[in-house]
Design a protein around this nucleic acid. Sequence first.
RNA 1: GCGAUCGUAGCUCAGUUGGUUAGAGCGCCGGUUUGUGGUACCGGAGGUCGGGGGUUCGAGACCCCUCGAUCGCCCCA
Length: 440
Amino acid sequence: MAKNTPQAIRGTQDIFEDAEAFSFVVDTFERVRKLYRFRRIEMPVFEKTEVFSRPLGETTDVVTKEMYSFEDRGGESLTLRPEFTAGIARAYLTNGWQQHAPLKVATHGPLFRYERPQKGRFRQFHQINAEILGAGEPQADVELLAMADQLLRELGIEGVTLHLNTLGDPDSREAWRAALVEYFEAHRGDLSEDSVTRLEHNPLRILDSKDRGDMALVKDAPTIDDYLTDEARSFFGSVTSGLDAAGVTWRRSSRLVRGFDYYRHTAFEFIPDEGSAAADALGSQSTVLGGGRYDGLMETLGGAHTPSVGWAAGIERLAMLIPTRPTETPDLWFIQDDPGSESLARELLAIVRREGIWSDMAFSGSIRKQFDKVKRDLAAVRVVAVQTDVDKDIIGRIRLRDIWDEAPPVRERLKGALSKYYVIDDDSGTRVISLIRRKK
RNA sequence: GCGAUCGUAGCUCAGUUGGUUAGAGCGCCGGUUUGUGGUACCGGAGGUCGGGGGUUCGAGACCCCUCGAUCGCCCCA
């Protein structure tokens, strides 16, 4: 290990092998969000600290110990975004995007959280994100979830199910919360240490405790269903029937909650099914995509009541779940048959690339070494051997050779590309393509 | 913030109860067999064993601290 080389920051990643999977997730997301007509937006990576501390709540873990905050040279407290939603809400208000409401937006990029890294969790991580701003209708929830569902489908991810719950409107939620506190307070002695703390700060969180004893208590805890107002009940009914109509399969999960206070009504997570390969791949970081309705958020940033729904998904986690795909290799690999053919090879390389044929060539090395390298690194390519000095009457000749049997057909495409620039002759016996002369 | 395991060449790893110049495979570089059908031959470079301190006649191996990695808890995508 080079002792004078600075180390990367803990929890950051240098992605090489997995970068293609990462990019596949982003490309697929871009394609699907266009299908659903979500507008692409770009957001700053940092904001004034209050953009996050106000909506998320001053006492939440994210704000108190997980934010990358610092003072700029003007003495202002800034923070690297720990999530997308608050920044998007701020942009909605400061740019007057109300005029576009209801507004469907999508973005992706890095987020930062000062956490202990583990499987599927990093300090700089990446999410894709979708929001519908200024829409209080349950149909907005359905639209958003239908997109998420199709995205996972198109990524080829299997064994992941949509878990759905409602937190009700503020009245329902408050009544439920009070009932939960009363219930757990009565069993305080049986709660785990962590859950006693949660009872003070975030009683809803006790519901997804991993502690055995807690889980037994949770089983008999009051559920939201007993506290839903008629309005909230009907809202949730519209969401679920809309999902059924859209062909999105879902599972009711009455103990699913959200950490932040601004969430209302719909809350959801796509979670790997127990025992599935996906569950195995993700370790204890089970949620792959999560979100909900946040009707109360805009007010915390001084805006008018603006009902909205959104979700975010970890790109790294999604990338861990996508089926491995064959490495994409060049259609052609150029090898110079003699040292004098370097500039012709370069010329041909430029031409075939211009014509959309994936191709590559080594910078140096003997023919033998070049063949060896092609064999080692590539799964299915064809080699173009270039000769110039055999016949002074022609420009040069090339031979196509299959490195592997599985190599996809490229000969006709190559000839098509070359004949735009040269008069060529394809000898049916020797299979040698001669470049007779340049056109015009 | 808490806990467990781990840290030897670019990569994957060996290194016996602490004992002489720290090894292998792969990769890399050079050359040979004149030119491919995952595997030919020869040679070479590359490690202050994460870092610091300690125990010992002697430490890659033992102890402490530190940094990092991995996995889990908290929390979350």
